Simulated assay, not measured.
Amino acid sequence: MLDHTGIAVGDYAKSKAFYMAALSSIGYELLLEVPAELTGNQDAAGFGVAPKPDFWVSGGGPNIPPINLAFRVSSRSLVDAFYAAAIAAGGSDNGRPGVRPHHHPDYYGAFVLDPDGHNIEAVCHEPGAS
């Protein structure tokens, strides 16, 4: 079971703003920022549902190759909201919201590339959940 994860990005301020906008649609907030003076390396922003961040973004250059990261949500409408918010925040379409039956019959997901080309996804596994 994962406790938290993170990615490295090329432009910390731009990516922090992107994730603040995109993830707010699924209930995530910027919960903590840790400056480079404390990390010993780069600034870091922790996102999640209070009280604990579980997704971190740090500066210093993007992961190469870009990674895939999926956020599980409880309804298809949250997948739709995530996609709209991420596109409005400057993300690039990498798969509009829809059922992906090659994963399983109720896999409803949307895919957006973040400013560094990381594939960020929101997914709902509930049958016909709205």
Rank of each mutant, 00 (worst) to 15 (best):
L30K: 00
Y108M: 09
G117R: 12
F82H: 10
H4P: 00
A17C: 02
D11V: 05
A21T: 15
A45L: 11
G91L: 06
A8K: 14
A17V: 03
G48D: 03
Y108R: 08
R96W: 01
D93G: 04
R100D: 02
I120Y: 01
A84Q: 10
G48Y: 06
N63F: 12
G48I: 08
E126W: 04
K16Q: 15
C124T: 03
A88M: 01
I87G: 03
E37C: 00
K52V: 13
M20S: 14
E121F: 09
S58N: 12
I64Y: 10
P51N: 07
D80V: 12
D93A: 07
E29D: 12
K14N: 10
S15E: 02
P101Y: 00
S24T: 10
Y19F: 15
A89E: 00
S130T: 12
G128V: 06
G60V: 05
G46E: 05
V57K: 07
S77L: 10
A86Q: 02
A122S: 10
A81F: 11
A81I: 05
Q42Y: 15
K52R: 15
L113S: 14
Y108S: 05
A86G: 04
Y107L: 04
A81V: 06
A17Y: 05
E33K: 10
D43F: 07
H118L: 11
V49W: 07
H125T: 02
P62E: 13
H4Y: 06
G90H: 09
G109A: 15
L113C: 12
L113Q: 13
D54N: 15
Y19H: 08
M20V: 14
H125D: 00
Y108L: 02
S24Q: 14
I67H: 11
P97H: 01
V112G: 02
L30D: 02
E121G: 04
G40W: 06
Y19T: 10
M20P: 00
A85N: 06
A50E: 10
E37Q: 12
F55T: 01
A45D: 13
D106S: 13
A21M: 08
N41C: 11
S25L: 05
A36E: 10
A13S: 13
I67R: 14
P66L: 07
L23A: 01
P53T: 07
I26S: 03
